[in-house]
Design a binder for these strands. Structure first.
Lengths: 107, 107
DNA sequence: TCCTGTTACTACATTTTATGTAGCGCCGTG
DNA sequence: CACGGCGCTACATAAAATGTAGTAACAGGA
């Protein structure tokens, strides 16, 4: 039973489960920080701004259960093929976020 | 001062502020549920699965401050032009989530 | 062998955030 | 003027995240 019941997603619709997973604190950030190369636990923790090890570990576990990241004992945590696909969908956010920040600042 | 200090995003980099905002509980879900048409407060609350009015209101305020949604007194809450752009970036997620769910199930 | 450092975590008390339920004030209809 | 729908707000309880400390495994050096 890999697709364990995720918080509030009782519909069974994948998009809801995904939005729920990605909407948890630090999850988007973790995936983002793994975009370049694998990272070790502590390195990752510092990159995302010093979240507690408790929650970092919890999220890493959830992401592993979701097949988005995996552990390479040689290199640390890295995105799976699936995780990389997801990241690709998110890359345009980087560019868009600049535009957004500008618009918000001017409002 | 619109770009108020968001949780943990001290870098000033827009992408970090954006990931932080979108990583808050219910935010992705709210944007998603506004994809088709404007929704009223209570309607939205039920669509996303019955989050408390307290938090729904908090998130709606944050999203308004981020210029992603706005209120139309006639119709309720709706995405701004900026919000719709963001949503467009997320639409591929819908299709991808099906593939992801399948892969996770088989793992 | 013992010391030191690095790794990935876990424990737990405190603080922050979300929930659940109730209810308020405003408006339009009958 | 009662009624229902609207967008909230109040507040006590419950859940989640933080901060700090510490554990256990492994590696290299004296």
């Amino acid at each position: 039973m890999v697709s364990k019941k995720v918080r509030g997603s009782t519909t069974g619709r994948p998009i809801m489960a995904l939005l729920d997973l990605l909407g948890r604190r630090w999850v988007l950030r973790i995936v983002w920080e793994l975009r370049e190369k694998p990272r070790r636990f502590r390195e990752l923790q510092e990159l995302i701004g010093g979240a507690s090890p408790t929650i970092v570990n919890t999220r890493l576990r959830e992401l592993r259960e979701a097949c988005l990241i995996e552990i390479d004992p040689e290199a640390g945590y890295r995105l799976t093929a699936l995780g990389q696909e997801l990241l690709k969908l998110f890359l345009p956010l980087h560019l868009w976020s600049e535009k957004w920040a500008k618009a918000v600042r001017e409002s």
